[in-house]
């Protein structure tokens, strides 16, 4: 494996014999459903898996949850807080699992964090260097779902739109629906740009669960040679 940039001091990437698969996509893109199906599929084939996601570190996940409630952090502080959460999981979960030959399934990775920060005006060079600590995954799947469908799925699941997923802190519109649509378009634009740079495998997530799952497993078989 390789790091995007400077990497983590003391970690030798050639010792990482596992695989890292990332699924990216907005809330309501079917990410968690596909994650579960994928895990079933891999375990059924005899592969050991470990799952990671955002805001799940022992170190700062509690504090991040708290900070999300009141909009109290500055932009740079919030970026760094999330980066800390990521780094903690990278070093304490992802890297040890990869050393032991696991398939690590990441429910979102640095790309979501980068897109959120860049949409909020962060300097892209700074962000790139910050996440130079990250490992390059073997496969990144981006579940692309139109903002219109995302709205429907979010309402069906939670009966409301989430403040952050609507980008309300950006002040795009005081109307949450309007803000959600505009924010999701901005995020998609950033993902489209990153897709070129990082080589995502883009999957049309507007289709049925089954159709998407079949495309994913086919892709993973091809990439991981399993």
């Amino acid at each position: 494996m390789k790091f995007y940039g400077e990497g983590i001091p003391g970690v030798e990437p050639s010792e990482l014999i596992g695989k890292l698969i990332v699924i990216e996509g907005a809330d309501g893109s079917g990410r968690s459903t596909q994650m579960e199906l994928l895990r079933d599929y891999l375990e059924n084939h005899g592969h050991a898996t470990v799952d990671v996601g955002l805001r799940r570190s022992t170190l700062v996940s509690e504090e991040l949850k708290e900070a999300k409630q009141g909009n109290v952090l500055g932009e740079t502080t919030r970026s760094l807080f999330y980066a800390t959460d990521f780094a903690d999981q990278l070093e304490n979960r992802i890297i040890p699992a990869l050393k032991s030959g696991f398939i690590v399934l990441a429910d979102r990775y640095i790309y979501t964090l980068m897109a959120r920060d860049i949409v909020r005006g962060a300097d892209s060079e700074w962000i790139r260097s910050l996440y130079g600590i990250a490992l390059m995954p073997h496969l990144v799947i981006y579940l692309k779902v139109s903002p219109g469908q995302l709205v429907e799925r979010n309402f069906r699941k939670n009966s409301t739109l989430d403040y952050w997923e609507s980008g309300m802190d950006l002040g795009l519109s005081r109307d949450i629906f309007e803000s959600f649509m505009r924010y999701q378009k901005l995020i998609q634009k950033e993902f489209n740009r990153m897709h070129q740079e990082y080589g995502f495998h883009v999957v049309n997530g507007n289709r049925s669960i089954r159709a998407v799952a079949m495309e994913l497993t086919a892709k993973i078989e091809a990439v991981l040679d399993i």
Binding site: P9, L59, V60, L73, G74, E75, T77, S79
Partner: peptide, 22 residues
Amino acid sequence: QLLTATTFSLIHCTDFADRYER
């Protein structure tokens, strides 16, 4: 003692950023 060199650095940078921005 959960901190590694990288997380030690990042958490202190977060702390610094908070004071810097506010």
